[in-house]
Each structure stands twice: as structure tokens, then as C-alpha cells.
Amino acid sequence: MTVLLEVENLTVDIPLAAGDLHAVRGVDFTVKKGETLGIVGESGCGKSITSFAIMNLLPQSAVRNSRRLVFDGQALDELSEEQLSDIRGNKMSMIFQEPMTSLNPSYTIGEQLIETLLRHRKAARREAVERAVFLLEKVGITAAASRLKQYPHQLSGGLRQRVMIAMALMCGPEMIIADEPTTALDVTIQAQILNLLAGIQSEFQMGQILITHDLGVIASVAHRVAVMYAGQFVETGSVAEVFETPMHPYTQGLLACIPIPGKTKRGSFLGSIPGKVPTLIGDQTGCSFANRCAYVKEACLLKNVPMNSIGSVRSYRCILSSEVCYQNAREAACS
């Protein structure tokens, strides 16, 4: 499979009155064609900022740096804003967390769908309308032609998110970034939207980054997963491996927090990770999870912990050896 997106040592700093906020602190990943990478982590750990950094949609004051940021053979960090805008919405699209506010209240659904295609393709308006109707039907919206004349406030949150998905697909992108696409929706609708996204992703063989704070979502739709904590990835690997044997104490804690049907006994204790996420403002040394870790040692606090690789796709950020981590994972699963 061809690599679509390569990110190496991506950092994002946001200058604040209290000092620089290191929202993303050296993130590496790749996304291949036809593959879904799940990024999971607690709210505030830098998931959205990571995705905005790829598209260069960061807040004005934010500073982005990277060793490599290559999409489809093009170095994104060397492109002008004009060249970047040719890629946005065209080869790479984004779906946001807030469907209620992500559509312009003053324009019809139709207009907002159509303008995307007309921006990137030499197409007649009629063709754009046809494409919009086709995609609205594709994302499961009935009476699509008449919906085109409706305004966002006339649609429910679930419908608006479907419209956002259709909008992202207007130009047939190679890659889609979905930032918590179901967080703001009712639980009953969440599954529908996720299935829809997964179906579309495999049908069009797109690369996808699916951001969520819900491990259950990752388990059902992602191929690979990256666990994010305080601006860094602390563990990456295939979904099967990470869920089977989580290496990093944080991942182990996260997995202990969700009940697994058939495995978790009724009425048994659901774990939670004690302690608070460290501040991202200012420099810090040592493992950022140290203050909440059950296995913390003095060495953890002394220097920054690099990623340890096991095999080609697995890695974790902990000073413990892989044998010890395996052992801990097994014990955590049994308890």
C-alpha cells in the first residue's frame, strides 16, 4: 500500500501570556491509502491541534514545526497558502467535531456543497448539483434534491454531520480527517455515522485519520491506533495488538476503564486513572505520565522518554522493557 501522509516530529506551540503552550510535542505517523489511523486520547491532549496542523488551519498565533510533513508526494510545509488551499477540500478533507456550528447559517446546504466542487473543478453548476444530490443520497439523506434548498438550522445535528461528510467527499479526496465526528451527537446516531464513515472510507479506498476519545470507536473502525497523551503519542500499533496487549501504563489504564462485553464481569470494578494531566505550558523533563503512573521510578523523572519500537508498526514510550510491559498488561487484564 502506498503511503499517503508522512508526519515526522510535528510540534505546535501556542504562545500564551503564561508562556508557550506545547500543544503537540513531536508526533510521528504515516497514513497509507485505504487505511484508517485512529488517534485516541483524553480531551485536551492535542488531537484537534494535530489535525489542524496538517491542514494548516491552526489558530493564527500557533507556531507549527516539522521535520517532514509530506502528503501525496508534496511537502505541505513548503507550500504557499494559495497552493495549500488547492489541496484542502480537494485531495484532503476534514470533518469537524461540531456539526451544529460548522455550517454557515446564511447559505443553503446546496450552495455550501456546490461551492466546494466549483472551487476545485471546472464544472458546470448543474453537474455540481447532481454531484451534491448523489452524495447526499450516499450519506443516507432522503429527499436529497429538496434538502439542497434547506438551511442548516432546519436540519438536526445528525443530518448536519451527514452533510459535512458529503461536503468532504465533493471532490473525491484521497484522504479524510475526521475530528471526533460523533462526539456532539446522540448515542443512537453515533454508530450510524461511524458505520457510514467506515463504509465510505473502504468504498473509495481513502486514507483516514479518525480522532476520538472513545476507545470503543477505534476498536470498531480503525486499522491502526495511536494513543496520545499530553501532546505526545505514547503508544502506536495495530488495533488488534494494542487492545490485546497494551504496553504503555496509560493505555493499560484506558483499557481498564472500558467494560468489554463477555470479559468484564457484571458488577466488577471499572478502573479510572487517578491524578491529573500535567500542564502543557512551559518546558518539562521526564515522562509526562509519571505523576499518574503506578510503575513510576526515579529514572522516569530525569530525562525525556523516547519511543521504543517493537517490530515495524508497534512502539511505546516507556522506560520499562517490553517483557515487563507484557507482564503488566497480562496482570492488568486478569485483575
Binding site: M55, L57, S85, D86, I87, G89, S93, N104, E115, T116
Partner: peptide, 21 residues
């Protein structure tokens, strides 16, 4: 607002984002 970010994410030109949206 979020919808201006959406407009930028669609690749619309700065002029369109500013004047139309």
C-alpha cells in the same frame, strides 16, 4: 467561528471566505 474554519478547510480562496462567508 467554526463555519469560517469549514470554509477554509474547503479550500475556498481568502477573498471568498472573507466576503461571502
Amino acid at each position: 467561528t467554526d463555519y469560517i474554519r469549514t470554509a477554509r478547510a474547503k479550500g475556498l480562496r481568502p477573498k471568498t471566505v472573507l466576503l461571502k462567508h
